[in-house]
Design a protein around this nucleic acid. Structure first.
Lengths: 343, 343
DNA sequence: CTGTTAGCGCATTCAC
DNA sequence: GTGAATGCGCTAACAG
């Protein structure tokens, strides 16, 4: 039961369309037309209205307009963690692309917690946002489709089972396979992988890793596949310590993201081993950290700009026409070879 | 001239308070009371209303409520760049603190561009947000006060000249002085600084650097103070290359943020020099990258949690009571000594 | 304790 | 080309 709290500010803000109309000696309707560029308007009237607008410092009330039109001009971007560089970099592109199309972006951090994601779901973007770009961690299938059935949604990440929803992703199996194959091609035989998880993305990267091993006729050694609770530097460090503490150490490590790789590299270097001479390291995501690490990090670079642009465009298209058939688009990626694998 | 675009979804969303009232056989007023927990309500009525709500899947329309109450429950956080780790980490804390107080956070990226920041200003948070936490780069003084006079604002960063606005900052001069003094105390004599800029924050750090030099009776050498266009890794690398290309190289570098330091360190290491043996490095911000770099980075660690909490609390207090006297609060910091300075 | 009523600021359907 | 009236969904006076 707080005070209203707008007392001190409300007067300054309360310039309404009606005020402008009175000032310009026209009807609200006309002002609205001028503001939104609708009907043809007599030049004299127009300039009178425009003068009134600047004189009064009128700005349309987004809220009221939305209540009327049902559109806010804002899209939401729900990502697991703001301080994971991959998402931060992606977010930046999304903001840029959305702005180019006249939308503002509201960022939401889900933390990958099911509850938080589910809440996203329940409430959905409407009516505060026109649509949602969602990078789910814990949620899948039916949950998501229920959301998508109610409001415009574009998913980032794994392919949905049945294509009921717009989707932008990369070929995780292929990318992981390429990364591992690169390591093998440079003469490594004991290639470890860090980042195994129940989550789909991780599973696909594990699959790619195994496939590359099989391609090269190298037997899969379960001891070399290490899990990670999350995809942070600390998890990579922990996993690497385990690998080093075991019997015969690996001569290469493929990490499921750059943060894991950076953590692992720190442990390798800290143990007095050399990268890439003793152990080569490859990451995934191509975050800026990796470029400036010593040694610089070889990594799989998904085309983030492409992902962002495609996601925003599909979402905006769907907002305009909800009947659009859902589409899955695959973003390109490339393997960037740097020092950590002997580049 | 787009289609309305909500056709496919609108029906699913259109459960209004009035529908619930009709269904429960009560007036809208009563439903509103139940939803907002206002007046005391007869248990029987309450449960009837609640049943109707779940049956119909009613969810209050935030927009309409806002139009009425003038409060959205959302605060905006405007930061220069999402993919600068310091801001990303800070943003995370702000989100957490705001959520604890029942607010959602909308993130806005200003890019440090004057135009963008000015736009922030012009539009201000209202009516979409209840308040704004703003980390300005290009804007200052009168601009900001004009904004603050119109709506609840808390500033992050430098002290405003006249205390007209809530403010959370750290003692940049003191921190820079400590960092430089630490380098000098470890026996360094040619201490360089990277990050000089016209911006207030940078100027204060330069002042702290000079002060530490003076304290130790070391003459200020203008060649050792290097500017940086932005505070990114690339700028640190460029600056360091210049320093190395010059005459006598420094034996220590104080960088105005960790990104600069990481960039500089990469160049030092790439030139075959050792850190800290040949050149010690100290950064500023204590981002996670620095902990996992090799060598790990000595840095000034501002208490980000404190900054976020204080900013959110002050803002929420001001939203509740706009008449509150503006306050400046200084967040603590500490020097974290790691390997890059011989820790 | 609950029903009735009146807007919040805007876009828009009708008339003129 | 422009004016008057209506309602988006909700909350808050004001009754009763």
């Amino acid at each position: 039961m707080r005070k209203c709290g707008r007392a001190r500010y409300s007067r300054a803000v309360a310039v309404t369309l009606k005020d402008v109309a009175r000032r310009a000696g026209v009807s609200p309707r006309t002002v609205s037309n001028v503001v939104n560029g609708h009907g043809p308007i007599a030049p004299a009237t127009r300039s009178r209205v425009e003068d009134a607008i600047t004189d009064l410092g009128y700005r349309p009330n987004v809220l009221a307009r939305t209540l009327r039109t049902g559109r806010t001009g804002i899209i939401a971007l729900a990502i697991p963690e703001l301080d994971v560089p991959y998402f931060a970099e992606l977010a930046r592109f999304v903001v840029e692309e959305a702005e180019a199309l006249g939308y503002r972006v509201m960022l939401e951090q889900t933390d990958g917690r099911v509850a938080r994601e589910r809440e996203q779901l329940r409430s959905g973007p409407a009516p505060l946002f026109d649509g949602l770009i969602f990078s789910p961690i814990s949620l899948h299938g039916s949950d998501i489709h229920r959301l998508a059935a109610r409001s415009p949604v574009v998913l980032l990440g794994e392919r949905s089972d049945d294509g009921l929803c717009d989707h932008v992703m990369i070929d995780n199996v292929g990318a992981a396979r390429d990364a591992t194959a690169h390591l093998i091609a440079s003469g490594r035989r004991r290639v470890a992988a860090i980042g195994d998880q129940p989550h789909v993305t991780a599973r696909m990267r594990t699959a790619g890793y195994s496939a590359a091993l099989a391609d090269a006729g190298i037997a899969f050694d379960p001891e070399l596949l290490v899990g990670a609770r999350r995809f942070h530097r600390a998890d990579g460090a922990t996993a690497m310590r385990g690998l080093l503490a075991g019997g015969e150490p690996p001569d290469a490590v493929f990490c499921f993201n750059d943060l894991l790789a950076l953590g692992a590299m720190r442990v390798i270097l800290g143990a007095g081993l050399r990268v890439p001479e003793d152990i080569a390291v490859v990451g995934f995501d191509d975050i800026e950290d990796g470029q400036y690490a010593t040694p610089s990090l070889t990594t799989v670079a998904p085309d983030k700009r492409f992902i962002a642009r495609e996601a925003v465009r599909r979402l905006v298209a769907r907002i305009a026409d909800p009947g659009l058939a859902p589409q899955e688009v695959e973003a390109p990626y490339e393997l960037v070879v740097r020092e950590s694998s002997g580049g």
